[in-house]
Amino acid sequence: MSEPVLVLDQVSFHYGHRQVLENINLTVWPGDFLGIVGPNGSGKSTLLKIILRLLRPSEGQVSLFGLRQEKFHQWTKIGYVPQNANSFHHGFPATVQEVVLSGLTASLGLFKRPGAEEHQYVVEALEQVGVAGLRKRVIGELSGGQQQRVLIAKALVSRPALLILDEPTVGVDLAAQEQFYNLLSELRKEAGMTLILVSHDIGVVTEHVGSVACLNRKLYFHGAPADCWAKDFFSQTYGSAARVLRHAH
């Protein structure tokens, strides 16, 4: 296989004095579909932010597409849908089209304006997530699930090689979730996209991903979902959270 998309090498992270991530080692290869699961507060979003260099690791090393993170500049290769992405102000005066087009800002670069080609990309991204009909609607007036799809289109429009999604199916109904996972597997098969998805909905995630990482400050397990169930790692990850809770009282 070619070089890994992502390597985390002994990554630790502290917020102030509190250690949130401890000695994480993880490798993601092209075409992988990794699900990161863990209870609330286990450090999942923090880990994603470290990957995206929104936060710097306290210790350890991150590499993206074969480059050390400090030397990596092709951020447009990575699409990101943040947790609570649809918590933007719902009075925001922008159409779906305008929001998705903004996903091309970085790849266009400073001073360059979008042209016909870029508008075509927008249409294609909206078709991919099945909301092309909503193009002219104001984003704040869509349902939560529709907004979520638009935000995924915004991440897809720059045609990233790696797509990172933080709890993308919160507030999305079951049928739409099913469609959403179908979309992800299409992207992976047809565009060869690498996917990292964070969720605490273990049941649904393990049905769809290629491998899971069970995170709770430390990485408890990384491998095929079936092995994870078999070895009962989930109760370990979630159980230790329960113990932490008991200590707190």
Binding site: H73, W75, I78, A85, A94, T105, P114, S158
Partner: peptide
């Protein structure tokens, strides 16, 4: 276009480079 995406989602803009 930079000001627009920052107004919409500053962290997302940062992550996108």
């Amino acid at each position: 276009k930079e000001l627009f995406i920052i107004a919409f989602d500053e962290e997302g803009a940062r992550a996108a480079g």
